[in-house]
Design a protein around this nucleic acid. Structure first.
Lengths: 204, 204, 204, 204
DNA sequence: CATGAATGAGTTTTCATTCAT
DNA sequence: TATGAATGAAAACTCATTCAT
């Protein structure tokens, strides 16, 4: 149920990495279920199986912890999306492929994705986290603008299209999280087809 | 700038209603800007111009207050949407009209709408608030199902369509709140046209 | 044993002043016996007979409390010394009168005087406390310089004379505190006669 | 700038002594600048260039460390004073010589001297430290009493004279530490002349 | 009714000390 | 022997709630 997080450093710093990952994992789950302010640091420690003080050996403060977590999951998502990104080919195919990759991520890391949404623009996110988020947003905007210039996406403010598409996906993910929908390939594809219509150039 | 909240009870309990409304108004603004756990009850009292103890004459607890606020705004939104709802006529026209009414609401009550989103499914919402939300959701689902049966909306799980459309609108509202988009009539309509494509039956 | 502190505000704010005074009194005693860092805020609260949180209604922080205490006692001492100060007359008589007034203060407020010494130049004293201390020091320096110009005090850097005289008095007070001396009028006067020799102009 | 501390044990345990001395040196500096409770043990370890656990190989606890430090410096001061002590000759000359030796010590080991003053009668000093201090004090008292019996010091409680003289010197040292005076030979001698007047028998 | 001073349980964070390596 | 990561008890401080006025 808790999102599996693969080891980062391999050989000697094993134990250290283990503790850091345990803390991050525990924090992720608790933040998502109880919120940032609703989660006490000793709760995280207990869930991670470490002492309360240990958390402060790895993170300067509770805020530093939530920021590290945010950056980690934000870039994990970006990596996931860009890993198999094929910039050529039919716009619709590309769009649907991306949509499926997003859904893949949500299925693999439901808590991680929920967390990203949860803390979006929260006041405990620091400047760097904001910058990271902004960078990815600008990437999406730029991609949309390019497609629009090629006549493959509907014209208009690229921010507008992105807000609608991202929002639609978030809505889907939220319903899946709430158990109102199941993310079967069929559902994901059906949703993707609908979402494609948002950006598709109007038919003549 | 702060969402104007019209009196609820009219005749004699004017002073009483005033205080209640002042508390709700102050809480709304503070919850949106600082979050539920980030807002102290005495802060709310100060902003509302009442004593801290007074809040507990109108609400059993901080949780009761946030729940009252949630139900109030949730039903205010529903009232706003249903007030001029015309169930007949072209599905597309109906959809766009609804979309515009939603945008109206966001423009009139930006903080109120932000609040509804903010506390969605927070763990301090009680059963009744959940039931209220559920009721409105089922209304939307039922409406979609009806339209689907009439062949005016794309087929599929009505929950799926609703998750996408509501999500798209939330994305729009969020971008407006963040200053990335301005909710001009043109923007709202363009967004509505795009969103309509989500539910529109596929062209032959 | 604990230094008696006369009421400041008289009529209505009685209870409030009482609590503030109780906190200041408890803090004074604990800081003197256990040191600033060695005294926990809840300890102060317990000794003062108030809740731990109450202290923060009267003082912004533990540091603010110790600073308020320092300024209060520093100016209480100054007031005590200047109250009956007679700037005219024989320098020796003036010196001895002042010496006795100092000793009076130490006898009346042993803990208060010990506290002033204790926190002198501690790093938790803020700028204003430093300024207060500096002001009184400059007053003493200026007085000495004046007397020197009149040929009634030994020449040399006034700071030097003051460091010796103040130091000598602090030594006396410390021995009294430690029970090695009793501050009888005879002892105080004998000490004063000796201390007077520090500043007395050399005999021909 | 940091007081140089010569090796204690000489022959084989060189490395060991080095570590012990490094710890003592680091602790001295930190205790003086941040206070006992304000200094964390790992801080001392870092400044000393050893592991935190290593400190506990040399000292049972933080308190044991501060006590060892106190005894070391207290006896270092005594040794310094008694090293060249010439018990015969004119009382005034003897007094002034002693005064200069004290000033020498403060100039050579400003931090060490400041430390002795700092922890004087702090509650973390143990019985043995108290006994050490008491021993040296009794030495001074006995010396004064002897001089008094020889009619070379002013009569009265020897504790009184000592409290004044020691206090005067501490005042001088404090002003030097605060940069208000510079301990030039002239200043030290002028101060010594003044201090001598404290104990000098009254002129007929 | 309304108040706001008072509170203690709970929060984040620090730190003296231990112990596996 | 030396280390420093780990810890839990304790620190400073906050805040939802109560209750005397």
């Amino acid at each position: 149920m808790s999102d599996a997080v693969p080891r980062t450093s391999a050989s000697k710093g094993r134990k250290v990495a283990d503790k850091r990952e345990a803390i991050l994992g525990a924090a992720l789950e608790l933040f998502v279920s109880r919120g940032f302010h609703g989660t006490a640091v000793p709760q995280i420690a207990k869930q991670a199986g470490v002492g309360a003080g240990t958390i402060y050996r790895y993170f300067e403060s509770k805020e530093a912890l939530v920021n590290a977590l945010y950056r980690e999951w934000k870039s994990r998502l970006a990596t996931h999306l860009l890993a198999e990104f094929v910039p050529t080919g039919d716009a619709r195919v590309q769009f649907l492929a991306m949509w499926r990759r997003m859904a893949d991520f949500v299925e693999q890391f439901p808590t991680g994705y929920a967390f990203i949404e949860l803390v979006h623009h929260a006041d405990y996110l620091d400047e760097e986290s904001g910058a990271v988020a902004e960078r990815y947003l600008q990437l999406a905007i730029a991609y949309i603008a390019t497609k629009q210039m090629q006549g493959e996406f509907r014209p208009g403010a690229p921010e507008l299209l992105w807000s609608l598409v991202e929002g639609a996906f978030m809505g889907l993910a939220r319903f899946a999280r709430e158990g109102r929908l199941e993310l079967t390939p069929e559902t994901v594809d059906a949703a993707g087809e609908s979402a494609w219509e948002i950006v598709r150039p109007p038919q003549p």
